[in-house]
Write a protein that binds this DNA or RNA. Structure first.
Lengths: 216, 216
DNA sequence: TCAATCTAGATTGTCGACAATTACCCATCT
DNA sequence: AGATGGGTAATTGTCGACAATCTAGATTGA
């Protein structure tokens, strides 16, 4: 997953840099993407830069209007809650399929990951857990939607709104229950628990950050 | 939904034409996308054409390899079955949300649509039913994934593999049950029925066309 | 003083051209 | 004969330039 590693083409390198800058907030949300300015900064032609912008649009990181230009997407709580609905549906299905297709070894590795998480108290393995299950679904279309179309956007929200550390410990317990269902090869239960897990995260966000309701 | 209508930009027009040609099979699946050839045929520069190809890639209609070129995607039964898993998850969620958010008028209109479908025996309103529910979910991210990222690809499969006419009448009955659940404002039931509906379509495809299993 | 209009600047979409890489074809060798 | 290597042609990625459009600021009028 090392993105900045090898860039087969100039546009790839520019895309990686821009993607990282937008997700991390170095390029502010809502700000304009000036083609001449960025072309100078990266020392590339506008053609390569426009290619990169096109891919940013495909990742839902920028909005483009013809003859006007591209702007970094505005992050609204409303849209974040929408994304959680999609995640609930998609990752729930992923869990169901993972119960069928993940190997015993993969499940044991995942169990080790969870135990490390409990010991080290490092909440950032949260993402790894979900990622492993999505990959375990062995459904390329599913992992494409989750890991290409929504991944960067979710990462951007996490950067912008800060970590949901308040739920880290309860989330770990829920991860454990999901893993148990996977090892029981109980796809229906795995889906049910995964959906409830994501729904709880959504409710947590709704209650914690909704009071200062921005946007629509 | 008239795509070929207004093209704000040249690349838009080329994209619409190419998208239609690929979906309908006028450009064969697996065939190469030659930039010089198509640029001449559409009488546009390669820059505009490459912009269009980039969007085709975002729609999952072509695969691109750097320094090699773009090819129209190959349709495998395996991938079609994958898509049906995604649809099951996403449209199931859409039905749940539609039970909450669709207005009484929208539901009545949908009922009229179904009755027309029964009388006219026109199976092509199948798509309209699903489309209406997706829109009724009032979740822009959800409808974006379904109507932009997967729509053209599903249409391409329908063109290529022919219509699943064998299930038209039973599908209509299932649509009726889903609508009843929606009018009862029973989101849980609507989701359950929608998922079962799509799962049945998937099983039908698996049994009917799987014997001559092509691809992986 | 505020609104509407016009002008100037900047930006986007589009175009043609060039270099590097790839694919294809033919000759050569085992 | 089949596989391997070299050479040529074509294609892709990249670049700079131009025209049409949009944005912003100044100007004019009420």
């Amino acid at each position: 997953m090392g993105e900045l590693a090898d860039a087969a083409t100039v546009a790839d390198r520019v895309f990686d840099s821009l993607c990282d800058a937008i997700v991390s907030g170095k390029i502010a949300a809502g700000s304009k993407i000036s083609e001449p300015e960025l072309a100078k900064r990266f020392d590339v032609s506008r053609a390569s830069l426009r290619e990169a912008i096109g891919r940013l649009e495909a990742c839902n990181l920028v909005n483009r209007r013809p003859r006007v230009g591209a702007r970094v997407v505005e992050l609204s709580l409303h849209e974040l809650l929408e994304i959680y609905r999609v995640r609930e549906a998609l990752e729930g299905m992923a869990a169901r399929l993972a119960a069928e297709f993940m190997s015993d070894k993969e499940l044991n590795d995942l169990k080790a990951l969870l135990e490390d998480e409990l010991q080290l108290d490092s909440g950032n393995s949260n993402h790894d857990f979900h990622y492993a299950i999505v990959q375990g679904s062995q459904n390329r279309r599913l992992s494409h939607l989750l890991c290409d179309d929504l991944y960067h956007l979710m990462r951007m929200y996490r950067y912008q709104l800060g970590r949901d550390s308040g739920r880290a410990s309860t989330a770990s317990k829920e991860h454990g229950l999901i893993l148990d269902a996977l090892q029981d090869r109980d796809g229906e239960m795995a889906e049910l628990l995964m959906r409830r897990h994501i729904r709880k995260s959504r409710a947590y966000i709704e209650k914690m950050i909704m009071p200062r309701s921005q946007g629509d």
